[in-house]
């Protein structure tokens, strides 16, 4: 399923961003990475963008791009989720 399939208020984990290089860089810049929890905060009119909460900030994403972000549903993930797949490379 993709971001578009989420209902407002639902949280999901990003599995894959199936788009071109630029799109992936743009999304990563704003905190979208595989394994990150995202919440669908707002949905606009048909054809309009989504607003997604990731790491406590809100990002507007057009439908075209949203349809390329594959997610899987996640339960009980807190809103300010900041877990990642593997937080290695500790800086201690």
């Amino acid at each position: 399923m993709t971001l578009l399939d989420l209902k407002v208020g639902e949280t999901a984990i990003v599995n894959k961003m199936a788009g071109g290089f630029r799109m992936q860089v743009q999304l990563k810049n704003l905190g979208f990475h595989e394994g990150v929890a995202v919440k669908l905060a707002k949905k606009s009119v048909i054809g309009g963008p989504l607003m997604v909460t990731v790491n406590g900030s809100n990002v507007a994403i057009g439908r075209g791009i949203a349809s390329k972000i594959l997610v899987s549903p996640a339960d009980d993930v807190i809103e300010e989720a900041h877990e990642t797949d593997s937080a290695h490379g500790t800086a201690e």
Binding site: L30, M51, V59, A60, I65
Partner: peptide, 10 residues
């Protein structure tokens, strides 16, 4: 040509 689509921090 298709525009890249919106990705914008609110």
């Amino acid at each position: 040509r298709v525009s890249p689509g919106l990705v914008l921090e609110i």
